[in-house]
Design a protein around this nucleic acid. Sequence first.
DNA 1: GAGCGTCTCCCCCGGCCGGGGGAGGCCCGT
DNA 2: ACGGGCCTCCCCCGGCCGGGGGAGACGCTC
Lengths: 218, 218
Amino acid sequence: MPVTVLLVDDEPLVRMGLRAVLEAQPDIEVVGEAADGAAVVPLVRQLRPEVVAMDVRMPLLDGIEATRAVLRTVDEPPKILVVTTFEDDEYVYEALRAGADGFLLKRARPAEIVHAVRLVAEGESLLFPASVRRLAGRYGAGDRPARTALERARLTEREAEVLRLMSSGLSNAEIADRLVVGAETVKSHVSAVLAKLGARDRTQAVIAAYESGFVEPG
Amino acid sequence: MPVTVLLVDDEPLVRMGLRAVLEAQPDIEVVGEAADGAAVVPLVRQLRPEVVAMDVRMPLLDGIEATRAVLRTVDEPPKILVVTTFEDDEYVYEALRAGADGFLLKRARPAEIVHAVRLVAEGESLLFPASVRRLAGRYGAGDRPARTALERARLTEREAEVLRLMSSGLSNAEIADRLVVGAETVKSHVSAVLAKLGARDRTQAVIAAYESGFVEPG
DNA sequence: GAGCGTCTCCCCCGGCCGGGGGAGGCCCGT
DNA sequence: ACGGGCCTCCCCCGGCCGGGGGAGACGCTC
């Protein structure tokens, strides 16, 4: 059965765009739309979507408040994907802290959007949108949303170990030596880590590791 | 004229190894050796080497104290390259704080050793030996040696900008778009950054950026 | 015993990356 | 006016990386 998605955005154009992109996929079904945050909770109760693509800036109730409302009032809440532009980065981190599961850049290409939806639907986090770095310096100490997001990624012990070694700058071959396993094995673990973190390459994974507090600089 | 190097290590075997490796290079000349830290300052005054390859654990005066002594008492002091094994990482960061210019792992391959010597001789730092990560958590707040080391790397404005973008997870193509320049241009900047940081690839450069405080996690 | 997750290894393949070397234009300081 | 640093772009090339897909072995749980 397909992944069910609820679109929440005050701009019809954006909703139509997302719908067009997502409906083109056989395994994704858009089950509803909302134009403001206030309508989200009742719609979620009614439609029980697996994923909510949630805009940040909306009338009545913004994406952050709507995210909080959904997670606070709905049993088995859907995954929340925060839809954003570069411009409202400052709001995004609040949404993540409110419990959202990932980012989605409006300017992302269709394939990336589809990928993001599938990822969160599978319970994986989407730690790494290209703009994550721009959030730096805006978190208060102690409440880093990304940390929970990475924890949500549920890395296995081996994968965590590989991520640590990646974060110390080692190549796959070097990691293989260190762990005394084959290079192909390391590749498997690395691929798993990238998928779970929503990272495109090892560099993004390492950044996510730093941003989330998984590793810490001096 | 060749780069002049002073070897300081209490083990003759290590000195011989280093000498063999370095002397094989036409552009590098080993001008002297010392077996303990106490002999370093007078030898530096006498020989005026451009680079000192300094062991950490030595009799009489260890590498950290010797480094301090040289930098404090010699005009136009040489570049200090700390020679270390994995095992004495805990001492290395002190050496860096004392003003050393880079690391050198004893188990590094000859080509890497030669490379390290050339780099520091050219006034560039060697931020990224494979073990840098192991230093994490040992720095006191406020006195991060790596920060000074990265500052010593003297990145140009453009290179710093590229490093920042690399540290936000962008690919070369994406950086090119963002800066509105050609992909080849970005490659040039990236290569320059890697060289100046002593990083092997962009991941190591990003790690160095985090470790040095050049970028900061949430 | 039949799953399921984890860890291990394999193949093929396209692509981005990074090294090496070169080159032209610009500004700035000598 | 010449040199040097910086930014820009170019070519060739080998290699690591990451995706896709598959598979066997182990241990756990149901």
